[in-house]
Design a protein around this nucleic acid. Structure first.
Lengths: 140, 140
DNA sequence: TTTACTGCAAATCTTTTGCATCAAC
DNA sequence: GTTGATGCAAAAGATTTGCAGTAAA
């Protein structure tokens, strides 16, 4: 755990203790190129640090989420996934056949957002919208 | 259980047994004006028929889903919800503050569907898209 | 030294499943 | 009378929590 990511730095600034567990957990989220689940974070770290407990993972995720450092997305499958808040917002194309998750450009749904606001007076949080369907490969 | 809804009729046509439990469960889905969860169906019926078991609710939902009579939607909150397939498709505006679920017109996202297909070669299943945010009342 | 954080075990919540009994046909 | 459906209890999978011990500051 040499590198101190942005989330870890922020946590220290806010006066929270920097434990090795927290550093490993948060660094796993930052390094992940996709949305990652608690279980995935856990098994990734446990290979090196067998003493890590899954409840520590959940507690750290809960803390980071409360502080707005990571965002939580429900991409279905009865499992919640996490992503650094700083990496920005985007939408997800979730393939129901192979499970592949493709990120979508943020701008694509901006017109939808304004329609919803105008017609339904509904302030949509489109930061992590999940759209289910079938991807290129599975459609062949 | 006087009335025989469309789902119940269909079930009989397909050769499945019409038990009082199935009739109550399926009729609860048909009568509901919104998406209903297994737990809600159960507690609604159990008031009258205390001998009903929740696993029967899940098994009946599983059957109806497999036969394409009801559709399943994950509107978040770690709970799956059900809706008669015959009532058609629509999208949902889910208020994260009060939990209110507003249905959205099906046509609203048809242009999105074609963009996704053209640009991403992704066949989106927009039958039950959930959009999270804050509703009219909670925004005041 | 203080007390926030962790590990452990047990609890919770939703959903699933094995098995013996029961009832729809 | 058959066999599919139900009830019960237990299991399974994700997440949460109480509590005592541990380590970051």
């Amino acid at each position: 755990m040499k590198q101190s990511g942005q989330i870890i730095t922020k946590l220290k600034e806010l006066g929270y203790r920097l434990t090795p567990q927290r550093m490993m957990i948060l660094s796993a989220i930052e390094k992940s190129d996709r949305h990652i689940s608690a279980e995935e974070i856990y098994s990734q770290i446990v290979a090196e640090y067998p003493q890590l407990n899954i409840s520590t993972v959940y507690r750290t995720l809960e803390l980071a989420k409360r502080l707005g450092l990571v965002t939580e997305t429900d991409l279905g499958g009865g499992r919640v996934r996490y992503h650094p808040a700083e990496k920005g917002h985007h939408h997800h194309l979730v393939c129901q056949e192979c499970g592949a998750i493709t990120d979508l450009d943020e701008g694509l749904l901006s017109s939808l957002k304004s329609v919803l606001l105008r017609e339904y007076k509904f302030s949509a949080d489109l930061r992590h919208l999940a759209i289910f369907g079938r991807c290129v490969n599975c459609r062949k």
